[in-house]
Amino acid sequence: MSDVTYILVTGGVGYIGSHIVVELVNAGYTPVIIDIFANAVKATDNGRPVVIERMEKIVDKQLIYHDIDILNKSALDDLFAKYSFYAVIHLAGLKAMRESINMPIEFYKVNVFGTLNIVECMKEHGVNNLMFSSSGSVYGTPQYLPIDEKHAVGGCLTPYGKSKYFIEEILRDVSKAEKNWNIILFRYFNPVGSHKSGLIGEDPRATNLMSYVAQVAIGRKPHLSVFGGDYDTHDGTGVRDYVHVVDLALGHIAALKQFTTKGGLKIYNLGSGKECSVLDMVRGMEKASGKKIPYKIVDRKDGDVGSSYSDATLIQTELGWKPEKNYEEMFEDLWRWQKNNPEGYETANSI
């Protein structure tokens, strides 16, 4: 590795992006963050995003960041002209699955067109190494379990999932046409937890299970609504695959070594490969927090499936990555973040 190896991280102040940036620095890379800072409130005296200062505290190093929208092709061109990027980790985009049902045009515009802008800039500036944050939602309703990378894709249940699937197809075509490109598609399952420091974590306004659970534990929500209690699972509630966000971030570090082999497209599930129900997650958070988490069983949501979890064998075999953190650490780290930052970065202070 040269003295400075620049890695562009789009969406680098988001939940997953911030943890990837920290691990990139720890591994000796120099991340260049772009984001629109929608969830990283500029609350410091000098107007800098709190999340940037939090990350800098963790890595004890000043970070490079730019306020750039991936829909702004001109600004992206200027950025690519300024830095000689070794690789791009593309995370930026809209991600709320339920919201995408009501806002499909916006999701397709940001996620698909934004990715096309990134890919065009990469081609124009001779950058051929790309990691894309796809999603386990591209598999749709599981045809078998656990889900491996050979499972059929495209039967997506939301516009969010479809946008990820469409981008995957675009990148497949790019790989076929551009033989010198290295592309890795990571199909994320459900990241949970936070950095051990409790300085960075997920915005509590996120519309996923554990954000709600944590908000109930801290007393900001009265109870959790559990959608469906009659699935064919061990306790009747939905079963999913959860992975610690730091483990997920480390998967990207392992994958950077893959780019030493020139050419081709690889697909990896990034999950724990373990199945855990909604009520299992509630009980785990109760233990970590010492708080009772009230819940109510309500009707299923349209499009939800009873069980969905990954086979993560391929990434373990080819990249030597496997989850290192157990579920207990996941809950403890999430609770530390939630307890110290009940409103996330919204009212957070400088460190």
Rank of each mutant, 00 (worst) to 15 (best):
Y139D: 01
K164H: 05
R187S: 02
E178P: 01
L145W: 04
E169Y: 03
I147R: 05
Q143C: 08
I147P: 01
N182H: 09
L185G: 00
V174E: 11
Q143D: 12
Y188D: 11
K150L: 14
D173H: 12
Y160E: 08
V174P: 06
V174H: 06
T158A: 03
D173W: 11
S163K: 00
K162S: 13
A177L: 10
K162H: 14
R187A: 06
A152L: 14
P159R: 08
V138H: 01
K162A: 15
Q143S: 13
R172N: 13
G140Y: 03
H151S: 08
I167P: 01
G140T: 07
T141E: 15
L145A: 08
E169T: 10
V138Q: 00
L185I: 15
V153H: 01
Y165S: 02
E149R: 05
K179G: 06
R172P: 02
L157D: 03
F189L: 10
G161Y: 05
K150Q: 15
S175C: 12
P142H: 15
I183E: 05
P142E: 15
L145H: 03
F186W: 05
I170V: 11
A152N: 10
I167F: 02
F166D: 11
T141K: 15
Y144V: 13
S137W: 04
I167A: 02
L171T: 06
V138T: 08
K179Y: 09
E169Q: 12
I147A: 01
I167E: 01
V153C: 08
S163C: 08
K176D: 14
V138S: 00
A152S: 11
G161Q: 10
S137N: 12
E178T: 12
L185S: 03
I184C: 04
A177N: 06
L185W: 05
E178V: 13
E168T: 09
A177Q: 09
F189K: 01
F186D: 02
D148E: 10
H151P: 02
T158G: 04
Y139A: 07
Y160F: 12
L157N: 06
I170A: 05
E169S: 09
N180I: 07
F189E: 04
Y139E: 06
P142C: 15
F186K: 00
E168V: 09
K162F: 13
K179L: 13
I170R: 01
A177E: 10
N182P: 07
V138R: 02
Y139W: 06
R172Q: 12
T141Q: 13
V153L: 07
L185K: 03
R187F: 09
N180L: 08
L157V: 08
Y160W: 09
I183C: 04
I167N: 01
D148G: 07
E168N: 09
F186G: 03
R172T: 12
G154D: 03
S175H: 07
P159C: 11
Y160M: 07
Q143L: 15
K176A: 14
L185A: 07
D173M: 14
I147N: 03
E168F: 04
Y188I: 10
S163Q: 05
H151T: 02
V174N: 02
V138D: 02
V138C: 04
A177V: 04
L145G: 05
P146T: 14
Y160V: 04
W181T: 09
S175T: 15
E178A: 12
T141M: 13
W181S: 03
I147L: 10
P146I: 13
P159V: 09
I167T: 10
G155W: 08
F186P: 00
I184M: 05
F166Y: 11
Y160P: 00
E169G: 03
T141H: 11
F166H: 07
I147V: 11
